[in-house]
Amino acid sequence: MLSRFRPVNFRPIRVLPVRSFTTSFVRFNNNVGKKPETNETSNEETKRRPLSRVAIGGTQDNKKFRAPNSIELASWRAVVILVILGGFGTYLLSNEKEKIRLQKEAENNRGVGKPLVGGKFNLIDTEGKPFTDENLKNDEKIFSIIYFGFTHCPDVCPEELDKLGEMLSILDKDKIKLQSIFITCDQARDSPEVIKTYLEDFHPSIIGLTGTYEAIKNCCKKYRVYFSTPPNVKPGQDYLVDHSIFFYLMDSEGNFVDVIGREVDSEEGAEKIKKYVDSFITAEESEKRKEGWLGFLYK
């Protein structure tokens, strides 16, 4: 009895490594597509196989290809690290994606097909010094926000200028500088002195601009601002000026970025400006980036 069992017990030890190798090889080939060369060798191997691999009195073992229990193998630490890193990576990527979106939008506002808002203007500030579109341009990436109004405005302008003051305070906390400009649509009554006193109520940094009727009209036209002074106004007569009410956000190259309307409150407005300022890149930087090795990302 003993002598008959010994070789049987012995055989699997010698044969198993070979078998498991060949079967996995066959499986691999089934997956990839059979190659004649490997087939021959596997045929050779099978020839050497015993007719029956089931030990006498043993049972067929079906669990030879049991799928590895992956969660058991990966330690919980690895899982935690993966989740944290993955989450962080996703956050960074989505942030970057939003930035690229805004930059692309800004890019579309350059060159061909750019919106026809803004342009050259020639006005004077409340100190009587000239202020032109060149004053919007700077190298410190300081954006400008422009509002058209008039000092006798009953309710909308004061509200909007209050909002501007709040936005400036919010942005100030976030260390974002913004050049804010108020342009009058009513130059007949709004002298530099009047504008100066008027703006002190809202925020000390607001620059008030006025000019000749022609200069104001030309500027309003460039910014697509509609305004109408009632005809035949006599000096000293009280009247209202009808005008469009938008804030115009301009980048540090003097290009139009976006408008902020009445439906947006100061927090939303500040958030909007912040996003544009954060994602702003100059035309030069944008060119450089496109030529760089990561250029495909920005095209």
Binding site: T151, R189, V194, P235, G236
Partner: peptide, 10 residues
Amino acid sequence: LFSSNKIDTP
């Protein structure tokens, strides 16, 4: 003329 006039100071 404007600044002395009451109506013209907003």
